[in-house]
Design a binder for these strands. Structure first.
Length: 374
RNA sequence: GGACGGGUGGCCGAGUGGCUAAAGGCAGCAGACUGUAAAUCUGCCGCUCCUUGCGGGCUACGGAGGUUCGAAUCCUCCCCCGUCCA
């Protein structure tokens, strides 16, 4: 088995404490995976990611397929060696690009025809090709190709996408079983179904029947209200076997992380900490901070007075604002470093709370994160 | 002293009679961002009033006059800047 999931504890809140053992180290769960789409978490070095305590990164099939190409990555010894990262990697399948590059692709039962966002050239991504690419990349966890629909959506569209995703999961699994080194790599399925509870349950049940080593919940946090994201997440995790890791794809805001964890989610990823950092937004326990705002021009405090990260130990808001306003590249690095520390530290604290049975004590604090810090 | 060229909103810079509170850029002020086409994008950016409306008033294209129904745009004089000639 390429991965082994060890469920250590299930809290009365619903939160789960676990360990995901991979060929590239152990991931303490619930975990947050920094997003490194093109084989890099933008702005940070791999050494920084190690310092931050990241145990697993997410990279993207579609992007690495286009550039530098999966054959090239394989030739360079696989993605871990290529990017100098010896801890775990999960690769997204390109399914999200079906959503985010909506005007550049056409979806059919066979696969997705993409017009490259780089040079306009056409590519045809099938569930089988997505598997092959991810095998070439050598990620620890590969994802099946899925169809992610923006919400709110026409029920028929959602149903079609769910049906297609299920069919693709079957094809991906068959292909994967045939050609992958399953002792090194695992393939996770993805549950779709929009905000339709029945569809979600059916989809989950069918995938469980197919016996994947892990299950993802996709197609959420794409336009629907947070309450629905939570509701759907809960509905799906109820259907999933307790001994398999659950990955809620693409979430979330700091204040929402706990909501997902208590619904039985073990893995999450999101671009918010890294992207927003580059756009001048810092996350803190007191809420978010637009570091470029004039009010911070002479603020001697660190971004977050309760934060132990390198940035908060060393730099003031005034300096970070200065860097951002000047367009200095260091702004992106320091802001990203802090935000990812904040996310990873938040997850550490959640894990500790699960271990100690004090999860409910965190609620107030998470509510505060939704506000604006001053 | 003379000949040209030029003076536009915080800055740069379009605009040669009405559609001009005046393009565009920069700076400034805010906001957004959820499996990354994002170091990106959006809004505001003369003052003021209110019933916040493709609302009203005021001020504004070096200065002062003038022509015109109407002037950043045309005329006169003046001031300033640049280049060249004495």
């Amino acid at each position: 088995m390429a991965i082994r999931f060890e469920l250590l504890k299930t809290d009365p809140s619903g939160a789960r404490l676990g360990r995901l053992h991979t060929a590239h180290g152990t991931v303490e769960t619930p975990a947050f995976m920094p997003v490194g789409t093109a084989g890099t978490v933008k702005g940070l070095t791999q050494q920084m990611l190690e310092e931050l305590g990241a145990e697993i990164l997410l990279a993207n099939t579609y992007h690495l397929f286009l550039r530098p190409g999966h054959a090239r990555v394989r030739q360079m010894g696989g993605l871990h060696r290529f990017m100098g990262w010896s801890r775990a990697i999960l690769t997204d399948s390109g399914g999200y690009q079906v959503f985010s590059l909506a005007d550049l692709r056409a979806v059919h039962d066979e696969g997705v025809r993409f017009r490259s966002h780089l040079d306009g050239r056409e590519h045809f991504l099938t569930p089988e090709l997505a598997v092959e690419i991810q095998i070439a990349l050598g990620s620890d966890i590969a994802m099946v190709l899925d169809e992610c629909v923006a919400l709110p959506a026409d029920p028929a569209r959602v149903a079609e996408a769910a049906r297609r995703t299920l069919a693709w999961a079957r094809r991906a699994q068959q292909h994967f079983t045939r050609i992958a080194h399953t002792e090194h790599q695992a393939l996770f399925a993805i549950v779709q179904g929009g905000t339709d509870a029945v569809l979600r349950r059916e989809n989950a049940a069918a995938l469980v029947e197919m016996d994947f080593p892990g299950y993802a919940i996709g197609g959420l946090a794409v336009g629907e209200p947070h309450e629905l994201t939570c509701a759907m997440t809960g509905i799906v995790t109820e259907q999933l076997p307790a001994d398999r890791p659950r990955y809620l794809m693409g979430v979330g805001k700091p204040e929402d992380l706990l909501d997902y964890v208590i619904r039985g989610v073990d893995l999450m990823d999101c671009v918010l900490p890294s992207r927003n950092a580059r756009n001048g937004q810092l996350f803190t326990r007191q809420g978010r901070l637009q570091i470029k705002n004039a009010e911070f021009a002479t603020d001697q405090r660190p971004p977050d007075e309760t934060c132990a990260c390198m940035v908060c130990q060393r730099y003031t808001r005034a300096y970070l604002r200065h860097l951002y306003v000047c367009g200095e590249i260091l702004a992106a690095t320091l802001n990203t470093y802090h935000n990812l520390y904040f996310y990873l530290e938040t997850m550490r604290r959640i894990r500790q709370a699960i271990a100690e049975g004090t999860v409910t004590n965190l609620t107030d604090e998470f509510q505060r994160m939704a506000g604006v810090a001053s």
